[in-house]
Design a protein around this nucleic acid. Structure first.
Length: 938
RNA sequence: GGGCGAUUAGCUCAGCGGUAGAGCACUGCCUUCACACGGCAGGGGUGGAUGGUUCGACACCAUCAUCGCCCACCA
């Protein structure tokens, strides 16, 4: 083995090995365990969030595979409608074209080409992460099978009246020219103005003043509303005002929606361009007052691009000439100007408001009147709420269910149609009269509705919201609507692993659709992890220039390419300089190679319950060092076992205290690891493995194995015992750690397993370790603890007195018990080697100890004669420090024991423990104080 | 306006009703035959504030402060 761990050399090889053997596929026997990957955007690339999430899922999957479960991690990608279409449209724009220049078919062809070209990136990167997805079952949301599932669901919901088409206000993206759902709108606080506009009363008796943040919409005003109880305006209700600029007259109506305390207490009502106003309109639409307004009050003033409509559009006759065709910004300016010029602008106040922006385009979203398809959600939400209430689905951590409930109990109908081309086209056809027919295909529609060939049918132009197909992912990937064997055995799936940001987008909708179409929940548990942020808690984003690419952490990257990567293709190029500077400051030498295992171990360590994680490269570095530590421990083990008798072929074996101790500690680690991963605490699992490996196996056991192996007096049975323990513990440890760090463990395991008498092609398919109670050995643990205290005592003296670590020391013992004598007898060899002792000798109680430095192991005193070794002051200082510490402890304990309420009311065992502790401290203190006096006297 | 989470060492974070932990960073010593991506020994925290429950609170409860997130129709 190489002296230094080199992740590159091992990672590619093993992934290919596993995949080519089809080791990721479910075995078909055992308890079912299944995770659906949240399908990444097919043309996207891996970011830190994926890497984190995939590490968690892969650890769970590998763990269950090792448990012998029938394990499937379903692979696949998402077509990501709007996102993908935007990318291709941007490419076209560079050629000076729009999608309309190509036409629908050619454009879609172009997107498929783009998918073919870039679609392999993310799956390649997932492989780099070691993700053991079953690629043989890979699915894409626009596959034939999944598309059939989408149509099936659409048709069935439509038949039940749970999908309907309707004209109503939607969130309209005027840049993308499509409707979007409520969830795709991000309200953002921005600075604006509150304009106070005067609307003259028709009877000539002055004005009403309305406050608005969107003056341009006044062109579509249908009414003025006041609160019915507002005495200031009671006399105006039913009157008309002259709507400036338009020559129209509109009524003053009363509605509870108005808050008399805000603004002037008068609100302009623009039903076609505001959700609240639309609701007011619905309550008043049948009143004569509104019926007198053109279009019954529902006056649209915008085109799909949010410009004012022009003369060839119905409604344009209501718009003054100089406004027609203006975009909304210009129209706003002109409205304000003209109000000002007419003396109708009362005042303009600065105002903070929430501006709705599209999550993809960033454009200001317009409430806009269009025909769209909707899912009636309430009937689906009921059972979905119940499933979580009854615990059929469990959220981890539990508190996320509150978020879920809150949304589900207030859910609105879901707008599922999108005016884009890339996606599942809506399975609905129109005849020339505009009648709509829904079916799985045009043929089916014709048959079902007896439409002859002479009837011209035109399919709906729109496609479905991407999340519609995602909602079906857990069952369509398993073959639904066919009742496949996979669906029968692996559904409901075991756990869904995801971020809280898509509980609404995805989790809730999967639960609704899953229950509706399979009669069962889609998953038993939902594990919600936090978001990956940068080391200071900032969200990673291109514009902040703080994005880390997981692949760069794995492979390393030079400074110049890193700078280039971070500053290329900026939406705001002016930020590039700052980002470059910050990047050069943070990574003066670029990013070093860390390897996949180190990155995965880091994610696991950070995966504590549910909170966001601040990603610190320092931790990856520490974990890379940890991998190196394992690597070198393995080298040591192999150097001492390969080609040697490790007892794998029988032969007498004798275990030392150290052997028994490490085997016992191993059981604890195995137990902790199992408990941790079962409760989704990969951080505990990682910590447990780290501490055992470094602080016990390496720091102590490997050192303890040296005297045993090197001592010529060791018997063959003893040497065999040590070798076997070295190998056995390492082999077990590799299995324990494999779900988190698959590559390095497999690489080492291949060489270690035969020495442990294990034959098998791959660690990945070996059994996950379970606790062997026969190896739990408290006596060995106690005895070795004594050895450690002994060694540590000597080392502290060395360090405190500045004695060279290599210098063998003579040591005298005094005041030992029978147990101490026994321990010494069986561990003399260990002590001499680890503490570098020249000799160990007992003093009787009557012997006068020479001037010495002292340490305590329980009641026993270790004495290292000072003669020629040190200066008195150093030892005095060391003693003084120890004594201070002990005194403080003793005082605290004594104070506690002197409190009657404590002694009376605390549990007896706590009091006893406190007494014992006080007594031990007191004894130790006495010893050290005697010693202090002695040294002082020199 | 509601709801949730966070506040522990210089930094990033665990934990726990019974004497505060890890990684990184820091100090001293050590090129010891697995590992300098290392070894040994150290330094460093009045646990955001206030009050309460308790024999005992960093932990449980209440209030407050600060930060972050989610939801919400105030024009």
């Amino acid at each position: 083995m190489d002296k230094t761990y080199d992740p590159h050399a091992i990672e590619a090889r093993w992934y290919h090995f596993w995949e080519s053997r089809n080791d990721f596929a479910p075995k078909g026997v055992g308890a079912p365990y299944c995770i659906m990957i949240p399908p990444p955007n097919v043309t996207g690339s891996l970011h830190m969030g994926h890497a984190f999430q995939d590490t968690i899922m892969d650890a769970l999957i590998r763990y269950h595979r090792m448990l012998g479960d029938n394990t499937l991690w379903q692979a696949g990608t998402d077509h990501a409608g709007i996102a993908t279409q935007m990318v291709v449209e941007r490419q076209l724009a560079q050629e000076g074209k729009t999608r309309h220049d190509l036409g629908r078919e050619a454009f879609i062809e172009r997107v498929w080409e783009w998918k073919a070209q870039s679609g392999g990136t993310i799956t390649r990167q997932l492989r780099r992460m070691g993700a053991s997805l079953d690629w043989s079952r890979e699915r894409f949301t626009m596959d034939e099978g999944l598309s059939d599932g989408v149509k099936e669901v659409f048709v069935r919901l439509h038949e039940e009246g749970l999908i309907y088409r309707g004209k109503r206000l939607v969130n309209w993206d005027p840049v993308l020219h499509t409707a979007v759902s409520d969830l795709e709108v991000l309200p953002t606080e921005e600075s604006g103005f509150l304009w106070h506009l005067r609307y003259p009363l028709a009877d000539g008796n002055g004005f009403v003043v309305v406050a608005t943040t969107r003056p341009e919409t006044m062109l579509g005003d249908a009414a003025i509303a006041v609160h019915p109880g507002d005495e200031r305006y009671a006399h105006l209700i039913g009157q008309l005002v002259d709507l400036p600029l338009t020559g129209r007259r509109i009524p003053i109506i009363a509605d509870d929606y108005v808050d008399p305390a805000f603004g002037t207490g008068c609100v302009k009502i623009t039903p076609a361009h505001d959700f609240n106003d639309y609701a007011v309109w619905q309550r008043h639409r049948d009143t004569t007052a509104l019926q007198a307004v053109p279009y019954n009050g529902l006056i649209n003033i915008f085109t799909v691009s949010a410009s004012i409509i022009s003369s060839d559009t119905p409604g344009a006759e209501l718009i003054p000439n100089d406004f027609r065709g203006l975009d909304r910004v210009a129209a706003r300016k002109l409205v304000v100007e003209e109000f000002g010029a007419a003396g109708l602008l009362e005042k303009t106040d600065d105002h903070k408001l929430m501006v709705p922006r599209g999550d993809r385009s960033g454009a200001v979203i317009e409430p806009f009147l269009t025909d769209q398809w909707y899912v009636k959600v309430a009937p689906l939400a009921g059972p979905a709420i119940k499933a979580v209430e009854t615990g059929e689905i469990r959220f981890v951590p539990d508190n996320w269910k509150n978020t879920y409930f809150e949304w589900m109990r207030n859910i609105d109908d879901w707008c599922i149609s999108r005016q884009i081309w890339w996606g599942h086209r809506i399975p609905a056809w129109y005849d020339e009269q505009g009648d709509v027919y829904v079916g799985r295909s045009e043929d089916e529609v014709r048959r079902k509705h007896k439409l002859g060939a002479h009837v011209v049918l035109r399919q709906d132009e729109d496609v479905l919201d991407t999340w519609f197909s995602s909602a079906l992912w857990p069952f369509t990937t398993l073959g639904w609507p066919e009742n496949t064997p996979e669906l029968k055995t692996l559904y409901p799936t075991s756990v869904l692993v995801t971020g809280f940001d898509i509980i609404f987008f995805w989790v809730a909708r999967m639960i609704m659709m899953g229950i509706k179409f399979t009669g069962q929940v889609p998953f038993r548990e939902v594990y919600i992890h936090g978001l990956v942020r940068d080391s200071h808690g900032q969200k990673m984003s291109k514009s902040k220039g703080n994005v880390l690419d997981p692949i760069d952490i794995i492979d390393g990257i030079e400074l110049e390419p890193l700078v280039k990567k971070r500053t290329a293709g900026m939406m705001q190029p002016q930020l590039a300089k700052k980002i470059e500077k910050a990047t050069r400051a943070e990574f003066p030498n670029g990013i070093a190679t860390h390897g996949t295992d180190a990155l995965r171990f880091t994610f696991a360590s950070l995966a504590s319950n549910g909170r966001d994680i601040n990603f610190d490269l320092g931790r990856v570095e520490g974990n890379r060092n940890f991998c190196n530590k394992i690597w070198n421990a393995a080298r040591y083990v192999l150097m001492n076992t390969e080609g040697q008798d490790c007892g794998q072929n029988g032969g007498e074996v004798e275990l030392s205290v150290a052997d028994r101790w490490i085997l016992s500690r191993l059981q604890t680690t195995v137990r902790e690891a199992n408990e941790a991963i079962t409760s989704y605490r990969l951080d505990f699992m990682a910590q447990s493995i780290y501490e055992f490996t470094w602080n016990e196996y390496c720091d102590w056991y490997l050192e303890l194995s040296k005297p045993s192996l090197l001592n010529p007096a060791s018997t063959p049975a003893q040497v065999r015992g040590t070798r076997r323990t070295l190998v056995h513990v390492l082999e077990t440890l590799l299995r324990v750690a494999h779900p988190i760090i698959p590559f390095i463990t497999e690489e080492i395991w291949q060489r270690v397993a035969p020495l442990a008498g294990i034959q098998g092609p791959t660690l990945m398919l070996r059994a996950y370790p379970t606790v062997n109670d026969a190896l739990v050995d408290p006596a060995a643990v106690k005895e070795l603890e004594w050895v450690k205290q002994f060694v540590l005592g000597v080392r502290r003296i060395r360090s405190g007195m500045d004695i060279s670590p290599g210098k063998p020391l003579p040591i005298l013992l005094q005041n030992g018990s029978t147990q101490d004598a026994g321990f010494l007898a069986s561990n003399r060899q260990f002590l001499q080697t680890l503490a570098r002792l020249e000799s160990i000798a007992w003093l009787t109680a009557n012997d006068t100890a020479p001037e010495s430095a002292t340490a305590l192991v329980g009641d026993m005193q270790l004495l290292i004669p000072l003669k020629g070794l040190i200066d008195k002051n150093a030892e005095l200082a060391r003693l003084a420090k120890e004594i201070d510490k002990l005194r403080a402890n003793l005082e605290r304990a004594m104070a506690k024991l002197a409190t009657p309420s404590f002694v009376d009311r605390a549990p007896a065992d706590v009091v006893a423990k406190e007494k014992e502790r006080a007594e031990e401290t007191r004894m130790a203190l006495v010893r050290l104080e005697e010693q202090q006096v002695k040294i002082q006297a020199l």
